[in-house]
Structures are given as structure tokens and as C-alpha cells.
Simulated scan of single mutants.
Amino acid sequence: MKKAIMLALSSLALTASLTGAAFAQAVEKPDLVLGVGGKSLLYYLPLTLTERLGYFKEEGLNVTITDFGGGAKALQSLIGGSADVVTGAYEHTIRMQAKGQEIAAVLELGRFPGIVLGVRKDKAASVKSFKDLKGFKIGVTAPGSSTNFFVNALVAREGLKADDVAIIGVGTGLSAVAAMKKGDIDAMSNLDPVMTKLEQDGDIVVLADSRTEEGNMKLFGGNNPAAVVYLKRDFIQKYPVTTQRIVNAFYKSLKWLAKATPEDVAKAVPEEYWLGDKSLYLASVKASAPMYSKTGIIPPAGMKNALDMLLQFDPELRDAKVDLTRTFDGRFADKAAEAK
């Protein structure tokens, strides 16, 4: 009995020692600026949850979030040095590599884009396929953002060029809703809760929906990574402990979200995210639930789908040598899973 007790105490001491060693690693850069384009969108729900549930603080991080009108502007903040880390579209890591900028995703937040393309109801009868969008004014969160890429890829399939449609930045939230309701645009590529509201209000007819597995199989043939956490590669190399803590915090949110109900989510986010209608927000969360990553890891097939989508409309990429293995660094997600 005495021997068993001594062995148990020895095991506890070893565990405590290992745990202490892990947490003894100092966070090299605890104060961070994080850029995002449309924080209230469900596309970026894991970010809001990480902030609101206190996971950044649990990991010893003090994160200041800067919210931009779209993902392209968040990317610019990283390239320009005003942000340390971004939650944005995976496609940006591919496009930046082609431009000689080493940007890498370290965690997948969304396995599907969650983007919906809807046509204004009074125009819907004339649109039988994507080629019928020629000449349309199409609202996106911001030019150069993933919602813009989505439109470009879909119209390219029907032989149209990117400039065959007029892309107009309408932002996120109520500004996007207002643009459609006022008739400023003919169609919109945007995210929830914006698109669910317009659909429920009868303002649009959905032409393409990437929120579900079925929708993504139809559009892309499978997984197409969406929102990710990405950083400059030199940041990852210089601040590996900080990078791990960032990934740990977001990974906790993915695990929380996997078990949460729409009501749980509504309670966790600011009420202004509801767009004045809680039932609408609950419906939006339910519609978008399938799109969130289960593991935080981007599968190779998903990377290829994302590249293939960009190749349909981006001439710069056709001549570029893109090493997809350098667009995602899964080491930190693996360690976060082990710790969990």
C-alpha cells in the first residue's frame, strides 16, 4: 500500500513538473493587434467567442482587435505591419505567396466558406445561371475579399471575366442589408447573418450557397477552407510560443462551438450581432453551423480546391509556382489538440 502511494505521488510530481515546464515558457509577445474584416459575421464567430469566453487571457495574451470593412483591408494591415495576426480567408495565403509574401495559416476556423450569392428578387427570374449575372452590380464585403473571390470564381465558370460584373463594396451587417433593400445593387455575395436576413425578408433568391457540405460538393467538389488564423512566417519563427498560445485560444473556441447550441452562441456574442432580431440570429447560427472546422487542420484536398478556385479567374496565379505546403503550418494545431 505504501509503495502504491509513493508511486502515485511520484507520478503526480512528474506530471506537475512537465506541466510547469510547459507553462514556464514565456510568451515572447503578449500584446498583440489582430486584424479582421467583419467581426460580427458568423464567418468569424470563433474570433468573437475566443475574445468573449476569455480564452486569449487564459493563454496570457492581451489582444486588441481592429475590425475592417473586409478581409482585404485586414490583410493590408498585416502586410503593412499595423497588425500581428489576422483572422481572414485562406485564399490570401495562396495569393500572397504568388506575390512573394510569406504568409501562413496556423489554424483552420471554417472548413466551408459560408458565403451566399443571392440575386435581388425582382431580378431573379432573369438569372438561370452565373453567366446571366453579366452587367450586374454585385455587392461584396469589400473588393479583394473572399466574397469578391467567390463571385469571380463562379462567373468564370460560365466564361465571364471579372470585369463583366461591377463589384461594389457594401461592408457587413446593416450597411449590406440596406444596400440591397434600397436597390443599390442587383445581387450580393455576403455572409450570415446578413444573407439569412435578406432571405427571410424575401429580398433575395439564393443562387449559390457554400454554408453546407452539400453546397460545397456542388460548387467545389468538397472541402474549401475559409476563415483561418494567419501570420507572417517570420513572426511564427520569431515568436513560436506566442503563436502556440494564439492557436490554443482559438482551438478552445472550436471545441466549445462544436458542442454549443444556437442559444448558447447568441448568449455569448454582443446583442448588436443579432441585427435587432434574435430569432433571425438563431436561424443564421443554425444555417452556418456545418461550416466550422472540426479539427483546425486544413486537409490537402481542401488546399487544392482553394487553389483551383483561384486559378479560374486569377491570371497571376496561373504562371506562379505555389507550394501549398507552405500556406499552412499544422504543428501548432496538433499541439493544441494534444494539450486538450
Rank of each mutant, 00 (worst) to 15 (best):
A178L: 13
A162H: 03
K182P: 02
L154S: 00
K137S: 14
A178W: 11
K182I: 15
V165I: 14
I138N: 03
L154E: 04
A153M: 10
D184K: 12
I185A: 05
I185K: 11
T141H: 04
V170E: 02
G171H: 01
A153D: 03
L160D: 09
G169T: 08
A156K: 04
N152C: 09
G171W: 08
L160Y: 09
G183P: 13
G173I: 09
D184Q: 13
G139Q: 08
L133G: 10
R157W: 03
M180E: 02
G169F: 06
P143G: 05
R157G: 11
N152I: 00
F136I: 05
V170M: 00
I168Y: 05
K137L: 14
A166T: 15
V155A: 05
T141F: 00
G135I: 12
N152T: 03
T147E: 00
A142L: 09
N148L: 00
K181M: 15
K134M: 09
G159D: 06
A179K: 10
A166K: 15
K137V: 15
K161S: 15
A142I: 11
D184N: 11
A156L: 04
L133W: 04
K161W: 08
T147M: 00
G169W: 02
A176C: 02
A153W: 04
G173S: 05
F150D: 04
G183S: 14
I168G: 09
V155M: 01
A179Y: 14
F150N: 02
G171Q: 07
K134T: 09
S145A: 12
G169P: 11
K161H: 14
A162G: 10
A176F: 09
L160Q: 12
R157A: 00
K161P: 11
A162F: 04
V170K: 04
I138V: 13
S175L: 07
L160E: 08
V151W: 05
T141V: 11
V177E: 02
A156E: 14
G169V: 04
A162D: 07
I138Q: 10
K134W: 12
S146D: 07
A162L: 06
P143L: 08
G135T: 03
G139H: 09
L174H: 07
D163H: 13
S145E: 06
A153C: 01
A142K: 07
D164H: 15
I185R: 06
L174Q: 12
V140L: 08
L133R: 10
I138K: 05
V177G: 04
